[in-house]
Design a protein around this nucleic acid. Sequence first.
DNA 1: TCTTGAAGCTCTAGTGGCTGGAGATTGTAT
DNA 2: ATACAATCTCCAGCCACTAGAGCTTCAAGA
Lengths: 139, 139
Amino acid sequence: MPGMAIGKLAVIAATKVQTIRYYEEIGLIRPFARSEGGHRQYGPEDARRLKFIRHARELGFGIEEIRELLQLSDNPDTSCSAADIIARSHLEQVELRLKKLQALRKELKRMVEECGHGRVSHCRVIEVLSDHKHCGSEH
Amino acid sequence: MPGMAIGKLAVIAATKVQTIRYYEEIGLIRPFARSEGGHRQYGPEDARRLKFIRHARELGFGIEEIRELLQLSDNPDTSCSAADIIARSHLEQVELRLKKLQALRKELKRMVEECGHGRVSHCRVIEVLSDHKHCGSEH
DNA sequence: TCTTGAAGCTCTAGTGGCTGGAGATTGTAT
DNA sequence: ATACAATCTCCAGCCACTAGAGCTTCAAGA
């Protein structure tokens, strides 16, 4: 098994090369070997791990959360409740963000709709931004 | 008009003191005067401007967008269409984020619901993160 | 007026999660 | 053998703040 170079791993896991090196730096992954000249060599297990990380990042998990999840994934005999707790608290955060974003969209829509394309002195966009009271909903 | 100190402005605009100094550093605001001892002094116009900035930040506008909006707000005779364009493109971004977040919530909910509270080796949370294919929706 | 303690000052560094570039070295295809 | 792509390390920068050290100034009470 000769292992693949960092560039190929990057393509496979849809990551940038620098990002992989960064993950190594902060201790999330490490290549299973180096070539004589010092080039990193990765195997399929590294690819799986990197995909795990990228997927979790896409889902909005922070690096430290991912570190915990990786540890759990590395030790399949531990209780699953830790992973559950992480995912649950993450879900709560997501639902909060979602609510804020929905209120924001409403506000922006109103702003844009009410802009009469005239002078700034009568522009609702500027007006709404100038005074919180113009807001229909809290945020 | 003696002007208020930075601490009071911070309270009024619901900002941290350091944030105000940071905004000054990057050229968004400046105090209308300094005391003999070098303390910043602000007036009501500064408060209005800072509130404008904070409100726009809450709505998710970036600093450079805000810089543009401030310029428009400072020149009430210019066309409102520039502000409109900024707000519109911002709205688009928000709607995109919203869609992603909704897909994410769905995914997380499923993960949490399917976790049987057993061992990690059978935990759906880990499993879903390990393999993108388990996702019901793209994100 | 003096004193004290809160609030201000500047400057530096750190956060998270990468991203980009310089300049040197290595790997690979012809 | 050579050309050129890919990789290496190291360092700096991004955004929008936030925190702290170590000092000075201000305002209120005695």
